[in-house]
Design a protein around this nucleic acid. Structure first.
Lengths: 226, 226
DNA sequence: GTCATTACTAACTAGTTAGTCAATAATCTT
DNA sequence: AAGATTATTGACTAACTAGTTAGTAATGAC
């Protein structure tokens, strides 16, 4: 059918290419339709391979979904080179950490959607993955290092929990993106518009930094110092 | 089969009770399994009515889902009596707004999950609802009123957008709850534990308030004053 | 070159699932 | 009390869908 110009061999069989095509099509299918909405037949059709090849390589729909999940999480933590930030002055380092987290979320809508989908399923697939969890250690360490140094230098407030801070940095960016469809409708704003996104980025950085750089108030209601 | 003691009439037919039973079962089913994972047969079984009665009252699975969605959104905005806060001193009013938003999210996990589910579906059902959207106007007005007065009194920073602030208040609480399953696993913490939740509440209030009460820095990178 | 392995395909199946049909009976209308 | 309407049911169906069976052909091992 197709007259190939050069291409030495590998015309009839190509396991790596097939695997990759399946994974790419699966990612699109799962991200667009969720786990239950995704159709194995559609993945086969879109990737141009026979359906049974999917089962040959991945075993089941759920295992294929897990493969997609592992890949996107690994990509996140590989690209997010936060170790570089550890040497920077604390304020500068935090600013960069917040904005790069925000930027990566914006650049990878698939990640946001898969995280939501996975939480709808009570993280049951993630929990069966051995590769994803270790990726998070480094990020928390980076936060901890910047936090400590900022506190020693007296520019950051005391008693900040690294995990809480991580959740706030992520949450401020995440919600805006994960819920943009409901929010855009309810608030009468196109949150996907470029200038909205940039404005939001600015807002998020400012919020995190003002929290960190303000002296912690002693009189916060109901809080006993742990 | 069942010997009823008193109960005057209404044994054989009871449209309102049937509708309510269907809606209750549907809520549990959609919240637990998502839109695609939910089964109409299971809703019929759990509510104890014949499946066709569901179609008689609600028309289709999607319309039933919308009915569940409308009800939970309406409940949120009915219980969230933010109008009361408008008369309070700005700092106090904001503190209460943040903590009551947080508390309502914590108290209504179904709402969080339905919001996530709806966003996975690109808010297509919400957009076909006429009842939900108007509910949000009042909340934004409350934020705007408190914001303005705080700025006039000189306790809040200038140039805060009410929509951005709303998204931050919600986002800080929402992410922690909506993604608690992945986060608990990845961060090695039981985020559902009572003391974690209380600590998080404290953290969120402090973050929003420090942002509001700190003077806005002029030197924020890349931001031209609009 | 033979044999085991691996890549790949077409056709099939058993189970599910949203939605319907056809009917009965309770309640409302007049 | 007759007739229309509405609540309620059990049985059915057409379409779908994850996974399988049984096979062919290319590649690698020796």
């Amino acid at each position: 059918m197709e007259l190939s110009v050069a291409a030495p061999s590998k015309i009839t069989r190509n396991p790596e290419a097939s695997r990759a095509k399946i994974l790419d099509a699966a990612r699109i299918e799962f991200v667009s339709n969720g786990l239950n909405g995704a159709r194995v037949d559609r993945i086969a059709e879109q990737s141009g391979v026979n359906k049974n090849l999917i089962y040959h390589y991945f075993g089941s729909k759920d295992e294929l979904y897990l493969a997609v999940l592992e890949r996107i999480y690994t990509d996140l933590r590989t690209k997010q080179q936060d170790e570089d930030l550890r040497g920077l002055p604390p304020v500068e380092g935090m600013k960069r950490l917040v904005s790069s987290t925000f930027d990566h979320f914006v650049a990878t809508p698939d990640l946001i959607r898969l995280m939501s989908i996975e939480n709808i399923h009570y993280a049951q697939h993630l929990k069966s993955s051995s590769t994803i969890k270790p990726l998070y250690r480094g990020l928390l360490d980076t936060i901890q290092i910047l936090l400590k140094r900022g506190q020693t230098e007296g520019v950051f407030r005391a008693n900040v929990d690294a995990v809480d801070l991580y959740m706030s940095i992520s949450g401020l960016a995440y919600f805006f993106l994960s819920n943009q469809h409901t929010l855009s409708w309810l608030l009468d704003r196109d949150l996907a518009a470029r200038r909205r996104v940039l404005k939001r980025r600015q807002h998020v950085v400012e919020m995190v930094l003002s929290y960190l750089t303000q002296n912690s108030p002693a009189e916060a209601d109901g809080a006993d110092t742990e």
